[in-house]
Amino acid sequence: MISSYLLLAVSLFAIGVLGVLVRRNVLVVLMCLELMLNGVNLAAVAFSQQLQNADGQVLVMVSFAIAAAEVTVGLVIIVLLYKNFYATATDAAQNLNG
């Protein structure tokens, strides 16, 4: 039973990682980050059910709160990025290269 939950969770995480690596649009990158986070959340909930222990669910609640904050900060960064570089592509901000 648990293995199918975990398979879904790993798939979500892997899709997220791939999205972050491959996509150039900052919004999509942010979305993929959320995908990775939710993969991890799903795994936590699945283990919590399996082990009959509420710790995992508590952790997920905390993680939701943090994710909400993170999205806010992320969106602000995207807005500033657009304001400064007139672009939403990650390649736009390359000023810090060696």
């Binding site: 972050v20 690596l21 990650t90 000023n95 810090l96 290269n97 060696g98």
Partner: peptide, 21 residues
């Protein structure tokens, strides 16, 4: 000496993330 090392600091987000992951 630094010519090699500075390639790492490409500021390409995706390559940074790749390295990190």
């Amino acid at each position: 000496l630094s010519r090699r090392a500075r390639v790492l600091q490409s500021s390409m987000l995706s390559s940074n993330v790749l390295t990190m992951s």
